[in-house]
């Protein structure tokens, strides 16, 4: 219903409407995914406890010619939820893979997440960002800037180091992703659905990948 071709309809979109962008945040436990998500949506920082399942937040980003409504899926890093994570990253326009620059383990894990993502995506479909978080802890850094950069370059990813705690580079990151998503949808003629207040929500586009079979058991 609210589905419209971006290219053709873009000029008609009023200020009240925005294009929906699904963005998923992945990464191992404790790297600051929820803190990043909270920065994105509310520009706040709180010491949060581990996420249960997945948190859903939104933020509207205005670019010069279009307004994007980011639907941010902040996934739990804990292993027990990994089986359900595909539920959240399916059909995402953007994915951020986050690691903690002060924990090498999380960087290793991030590479696994990237590989996992690659399995489910046609390259070029999804904007993938690699994020080294916690730059507020330079003294205990274990992953160098170059390492992150070269990994991102080798895979053609957006790369940024941020601090969700201080807010350093977080809005830049979101803007960067927004531009890329916007660019890609224009290039690829990929549809973004329009989002309108108080209108019934259309879940996914028709061309989403087939639901993964390796999902966790369906409830009773």
């Amino acid at each position: 219903m609210a589905e419209k071709k971006v290219g053709s309809r873009r000029e008609f979109l009023g200020k009240a409407s925005a294009l929906r962008v699904k963005m998923v945040i992945l990464g191992s436990s404790g790297v600051g995914k929820s803190s990043l998500a909270l920065r994105f949506s509310k520009d706040e920082f709180k010491n949060s406890s581990p996420t249960v399942g997945c948190a859903y937040l939104t933020q509207v980003v205005c670019l010069h010619d279009v307004t994007l409504r980011f639907e941010i899926w902040d996934t739990a890093g804990q292993e027990k939820y990994h089986s359900v994570t595909p539920l959240y990253y399916r059909g995402a326009h953007a994915a951020l893979v986050v690691y903690d620059i002060s924990k090498r383990e999380s960087f290793v894990r991030a590479q696994l997440w990237l590989r996992e993502l690659e399995k489910h995506y046609i390259p070029g479909e999804t904007v993938v960002g690699l994020v080294g978080n916690k730059t507020d802890l330079p003294n205990i850094r274990q992953v160098s800037l170059q390492e992150g950069q070269s990994l991102a370059e080798s895979k053609g990813l957006v790369f940024m180091e941020t601090s969700a705690k201080s807010g350093e580079q977080t809005s830049e990151l979101l803007l960067n992703i927004a531009h890329r998503v916007n660019q890609r949808t224009m290039d690829k003629d990929r549809d973004l659905t329009e989002w309108r207040e108080a209108e019934c929500v259309e879940l996914y586009q028709g061309n989403r990948p087939h639901p993964l079979t390796a999902c966790c058991p369906i409830g009773p």
Binding site: S34, S41, S49, V52, G53, A55, Y56, L57
Partner: peptide, 20 residues
């Protein structure tokens, strides 16, 4: 027990052990 709920909307698998 989870302050994380206060951030946004949560969607999570959960089992009710006595129910099933």
């Amino acid at each position: 027990a989870s302050s994380a709920f206060q951030a946004g909307e949560i969607w999570t698998p959960i089992c009710l052990p006595l129910f099933n």
